[in-house]
Amino acid sequence: MEPDARRPTDPWIAALARLYDQQLRGQVASYSNMYGGRSRSAAHLDEFFFRLVEIAEPARFVEIGAYKAEASRRARRTLPRARVVAFEANPHNHARYRGEIADDVPIEYLHMAVADGPTELTFHLRREVAGEQLREVTGNSSLLLRTAEDTTYEKVAVPATSLDAFFADELTVPTCAWVDVEGASGAVLGGGAGFFRSCTVVKIEVEEKPIWRGQWLSLDVLEHFLAEGFQPIARDIEYENQFNVVFARNDFARDPRVLAAAEYQGNYMTHHLHADIDDVDGTWSDGATQQPSAGADQPSAGANQPSVGAARPPAAGEQPPASGRGRLSGLRRRLSGGR
Results as ranks from 00 to 15, higher is better:
160 A>Y: 01
193 A>I: 05
315 A>Q: 14
277 I>K: 00
88 E>L: 10
5 A>D: 05
175 T>R: 05
307 S>A: 08
38 R>M: 06
257 R>W: 08
231 Q>P: 00
181 V>F: 08
64 I>F: 11
296 A>E: 15
313 P>M: 09
59 A>G: 14
168 A>I: 03
339 R>T: 09
42 A>H: 12
308 V>H: 01
127 R>T: 15
91 P>Q: 08
293 S>A: 15
162 S>L: 03
337 G>I: 05
286 D>R: 05
279 D>N: 12
140 N>M: 14
47 E>Q: 10
50 F>S: 03
8 P>N: 06
51 R>N: 09
137 V>M: 08
7 R>K: 10
219 L>W: 01
294 A>N: 06
159 P>A: 11
193 A>W: 08
66 A>E: 04
124 H>L: 05
302 G>Y: 02
123 F>G: 09
28 V>T: 15
207 E>Y: 04
23 Q>A: 12
87 F>L: 03
244 N>S: 11
55 I>W: 00
151 T>G: 01
259 L>H: 08
45 L>R: 07
66 A>Q: 07
260 A>N: 02
153 Y>A: 07
20 Y>G: 00
68 K>T: 14
100 E>P: 07
22 Q>N: 05
150 D>V: 14
97 Y>C: 05
225 F>W: 11
90 N>G: 13
23 Q>V: 09
94 H>R: 09
247 F>Y: 15
46 D>F: 11
281 D>M: 10
6 R>Q: 11
3 P>C: 10
2 E>H: 06
94 H>T: 12
168 A>L: 00
220 D>R: 06
31 Y>A: 02
311 A>I: 11
180 D>P: 13
133 Q>V: 15
193 A>M: 06
114 V>N: 05
281 D>I: 10
91 P>E: 02
28 V>W: 01
227 A>Y: 01
311 A>T: 11
247 F>H: 04
126 R>P: 02
211 I>M: 15
209 K>Y: 12
33 N>A: 13
109 Y>V: 01
71 A>S: 13
242 Q>T: 10
92 H>V: 13
334 R>K: 13
164 D>R: 00
159 P>W: 03
233 I>K: 04
197 R>Q: 15
260 A>K: 04
9 T>E: 01
262 A>Q: 05
58 P>V: 11
166 F>I: 00
56 A>H: 07
54 E>C: 01
333 R>S: 15
250 N>C: 12
3 P>D: 04
